[in-house]
Amino acid sequence: MRVDFTHETLPQRVVFASYEAAGHVADEVARLGAARPMVIAAEADSALADPLVAALPAAVRHTEVVMHVPADVAERARAAAKRHDADVLVSVGGGSTTGLAKAVALTTGLPIVAVPTTYAGSEATNVWGLTEDGRKTTGVDARVLPRSVVYDASLLLSLPVPLSVASGLNALAHCVDSMWAPRVDPIDQALALEGIRALRQGLPEVVRDPQGIEGREQTLYGAYLAAVAFASAGSGLHHKICHVLGGMYNLPHAQTHAVVLPYVLALNAPSVPDSEQRMAAAFGAASALEGLQRLREQVQAPRALRDYGLRESDLPAAVDAVLAAVPPHNPTPVTRADLEDLLRRAWNGGEPR
């Protein structure tokens, strides 16, 4: 079998070390030659951000962080960066926090040092997203890719187990989507498969022992691999569905991904038997869907979109919006009937098929 592909690796420095975030963040800021950092961290993450701020003389804080990065919130953050003459952004938090830093970098060109406190993965991609008038717009731009990422699994010890599960399954969705996304290549698939293996091992350990660092490290490692694969492979059907639902109905990001994933896997897997079997092996199961469902049972995954605010009456408009966003080369041709069935099952928590 011939090997023929083009792969682009994004330029980014990654530091992975538990219990050492403050020192490494200060080092990364210094490496960039910056002296006036603006630390973006929600009030809820103050306990995690405070030690990092203490290690950064002259740092200013910005605490207005909102899910899905509304455009007006982004504008206020840009104004704050300009007001303080910031020369670097330090984001401490999950995907919404990283996303806000990216929105500022998109128009200012300021470098980002990202310190993730969930398994969202946005820190490893050059993808930005903004929401306005119920519509989420995403794009790709080199300016939004963080220059450095400081991974410290100890910062995730306080992440509640249910949110850890949802966030970890969001990372798993990056792996699955990357197996057949528009720009997929063998490197992406290798990263995604190792990501599946790491997340399959790490997430149950996080549930069993939330204060154990090993499970957190393994899950964070898997989430990073997932994000690198996704950044290269691009956004597949799963992410198109979740971006539509999040933007239109303000659904929680991680939980939406966690619910939708098995339904997209069930739709696409039969059309890519080789990739399906490789995923099954990474899950340690006879089939990829069986492995995913077994993991979901182990960690008590979110089950239904109706549990997170989506109404049954919202489904027809959601189908229309998703149908317009379906990637052109999805493994299984997608019809309106497919989407109606998929979204209804995801809404009520029915069996994927």
Results as ranks from 00 to 15, higher is better:
Gln218Glu: 11
Phe283Gln: 04
Val29Gly: 13
Phe283Pro: 09
Arg13Met: 09
Asn126Phe: 10
Glu351Thr: 14
Gln12Ser: 03
Thr335Arg: 08
Thr118Lys: 05
Leu339Thr: 14
Glu205Ile: 05
Ser46Val: 02
Asn348Phe: 07
Thr63His: 12
Gly121Arg: 01
Ser235Val: 02
Ala114Phe: 12
Trp180Met: 03
Ala74Gly: 10
Val15Leu: 10
Gly99His: 12
Leu245Tyr: 04
Ala114Trp: 12
His68Leu: 08
Ala74Trp: 08
Val259Pro: 05
Glu351Pro: 04
Pro316His: 12
Gly139His: 08
Leu203Asp: 05
Gln218Ala: 03
Thr332Phe: 01
Glu290Tyr: 07
Ser313Thr: 15
Ala30Pro: 02
Val15Trp: 05
Ala301Phe: 08
Gly33His: 15
Glu20Gly: 11
Ala280Pro: 12
Arg216Glu: 13
Tyr263Gln: 06
Ala34Ile: 12
Thr118Ile: 07
Gly234Ile: 11
Ala280Arg: 12
Trp128Glu: 02
Val319Gln: 15
Arg36Val: 05
Ala231Asn: 15
Asp141Ser: 14
Glu64Ile: 07
Val299Glu: 11
Phe16Asn: 06
Glu64Asn: 10
Glu290Gln: 15
Ala281Leu: 11
Gly236Leu: 02
Asp338Phe: 01
Asp87His: 05
Lys240Leu: 08
Asp320Ala: 15
Arg208Ala: 15
Tyr249Met: 09
Ser164Pro: 13
Asp274Pro: 00
Glu312Val: 04
Val60His: 12
Met179Asp: 00
Leu106Thr: 09
Val150Asn: 11
Leu267Ser: 03
Leu310Arg: 06
Ala231Gln: 04
Gly212Gln: 06
His7Gln: 07
Asp185Glu: 04
Pro352Arg: 11
Val272Trp: 01
Ile112Ser: 10
Leu48Val: 00
Leu169His: 04
Pro111Glu: 09
Asp188Cys: 15
Glu8Thr: 14
Ala80Phe: 07
Leu339Asn: 04
Leu172Val: 06
Asp209Val: 13
Ala22Asp: 11
Glu8Ile: 09
Asn250Leu: 14
Tyr119Trp: 06
Val88Glu: 04
Lys136Gln: 02
Arg2Val: 03
Ala321Arg: 15
Ala58Ile: 02
